[in-house]
Write a protein that binds this DNA or RNA. Structure first.
Lengths: 339, 339
DNA sequence: GTGAAAGCGCTAACAT
DNA sequence: ATGTTAGCGCTTTCAC
């Protein structure tokens, strides 16, 4: 620490320093750093590169962002990054963004719409190139975004909000497949643990559950509504086993709920899958490590993240906003009675 | 979409627009927006605020960052954000940052030192105000950071790298407490599942395990070294039960490892805690939802995150870098034989 | 209490 | 192939 006490926080060495050191103009440094838009003689370029190395020059991203009107940063808003599914999604998004040289700003809405909007606004003022939003609401209010004319893509939505790109899976179809599998195991009384999406419209997973039941002429089993969390699933499980027509199988709308459900059943001395079979939704990593392992409808998060990033970088935004629906895959483990 | 095809991405309305609309100078708008450094007449301020509202003005953070030399953004580098512990940590950091009006850039090193350094450099060029680093290595190479003279704080480190602030817990002490608890249950042959930290130096948790054993005059049980993940714990568990002196209790260096261990034991038909008791480290949310619930050494992540952010904002960085060690708390559940 | 203006570091159009 | 230069939107000093 031989430096004077108060040091400007910005990196001391600027493009001008590099230019001087290399004996060229500032523009040439730009050309070299950005590999364009003009090209420079190899020898000159080499001198510049050397200067950059020696001086330890790093371009100032803030200046670049100001000039370009874009920070080459994505803003990711999640309900809750520590939820295993969203954590996985965040990881995939970070990877996809990184591959394109974008940084990722992350914020949690914690299930609050107002927090979501606050973060949205914050991101906009920070000149993020695009916003990736896993909204709390199924039809988020995006007026702020619209006025800023910034690309947005909705993550993990069964359907698009009008005028916006979205990626998601077919919740209904995936759920239906899982429930059909439970029926195939011989179950007639199949309950549902379903998350609350803050909307009047039924969740696709609830619809898929109903579809499967209807197809087989079964009547709906008991429903427990609770948050998409382990805690929610635990509470739902307690209610389900206290009810007077205990189901022999349960479909849970998230792996986290299923983990909570599992705990409730274990505590009640109920055997899985012998007494109650379980299937759930998400295909998060934890589903492989519960006991027993969860039969679950897996979402292809990495592909979805890549598509989201592509939707938002790949040229004309909002011109023809697309809804990309990805196929789910039923992963069969022991909780349903297989194996 | 009636606008021309190519629209500058930046928000159309700038401080100048606001100034014009409010009939004041640009400077006054700044004063109002930042509540300083000069004060303005209430009536004028009201006019400016009104203009801001009507025009939908949002300050351009890139310009601000350029001018100020700071983006009011923290860079957080994690080995792996979808690991439950780090996910929790990220959440706490995001919250703490948000409280101070800072945004959070997040990146994963995926256990790779070179990736860690790449992200570090990237963050620096992006003028982050500070870097919060949960390093892969126990003594990370921070020369880049040093030359940029930017505040850094090491997260989740048992000890500080010389000259840098750090927050962490006393791994050794926490582990010792957990193992003592296992001994108290009557166990004499206590195994260890320990993560690899890419260092010659023994992990504090290994030392704590040894301490507890030594105190009671017990010899070391079998050791299985594996990554700090569920997969790692699973593999370690398989090895442990295949070994010829199977322990009656195991201490795992992370909850994730314990989750994997649990699965391996369940698959082997081994009862927990009757046949093998388990205790682990971290106190992540998942520890409450395994079966049986994990007895674990909890880290106070929220407090640690707040301290990290404080260390990095609270004035003089690097002048007297502090190592803040937080106390752990043994949370007793069923996996150790309690309850 | 308010305004004018310099300049943060960079990009790219326009000179040469 | 390289140099010159005008801003990007903002903060803040200095004048009034």
């Amino acid at each position: 620490m031989t430096q004077p006490a108060v040091q400007p926080l910005r990196s001391a060495v600027t493009r001008t320093d590099v230019a001087r050191y290399a004996g060229v103009s500032a523009a040439v440094v730009s050309y070299v750093v950005n590999s364009g838009p003009r090209n420079v003689a190899p020898a000159t370029a080499a001198r510049v590169l050397e200067a950059i190395r020696v001086l330890g020059y790093r371009p100032n991203a803030a200046a670049r962002a100001l000039k370009l009107g874009s920070s080459e940063t994505f803003g990711l808003i999640l309900p809750e990054n520590s939820n295993p599914l969203f954590a996985q999604l965040a990881h995939s998004v970070e990877e996809a963004a990184d591959r394109l040289g974008f940084a990722l700003m992350m914020a949690n809405s914690d299930g609050s719409l107002s927090k979501e909007r606050r973060h949205l606004r914050n991101f906009l003022s920070r000149q993020v190139t695009a916003v990736l939003l896993a909204s709390v609401a199924s039809e988020p209010d995006l007026s702020d975004v619209i006025s800023a004319d910034i690309p947005v893509v909705l993550l993990n939505q069964g359907q698009a909000a009008p005028g916006f790109a979205a990626v998601g899976v077919d919740l209904r179809q995936g759920a239906q497949e899982a429930v059909k599998h439970l029926i195939w195991h011989g179950h007639r009384n199949i309950g549902l643990v379903i998350g609350t999406n803050g909307t009047q419209k039924a969740d696709g997973r609830e619809l898929g559950w109903l579809d499967a039941l209807a197809t087989e002429g079964l009547r709906a089993g008991p429903i427990a509504r609770a948050p998409f969390t382990r805690e929610g699933g635990y509470a739902a499980g307690k209610r389900l086993i206290a009810g007077n027509e205990r189901p022999t199988a349960v479909f849970a709308s998230s792996d986290s709920q299923a983990a909570g459900l599992l705990r409730a059943l274990h505590e009640g001395g109920i055997r899985i899958p012998e007494d109650i079979a379980i299937a759930s939704f998400d295909g998060s990593p934890e589903s492989e490590y519960t006991w027993p392992g969860l039969t679950t409808v897996a979402q292809p998060l990495a592909a979805m993240a890549a598509a989201a990033v592509e939707a938002v970088t790949g040229g004309g935004h909002n011109d023809n906003p697309t809804l990309r629906i990805f196929p789910t895959e039923l992963i069969v483990r022991r909780s349903c009675g297989c194996g």
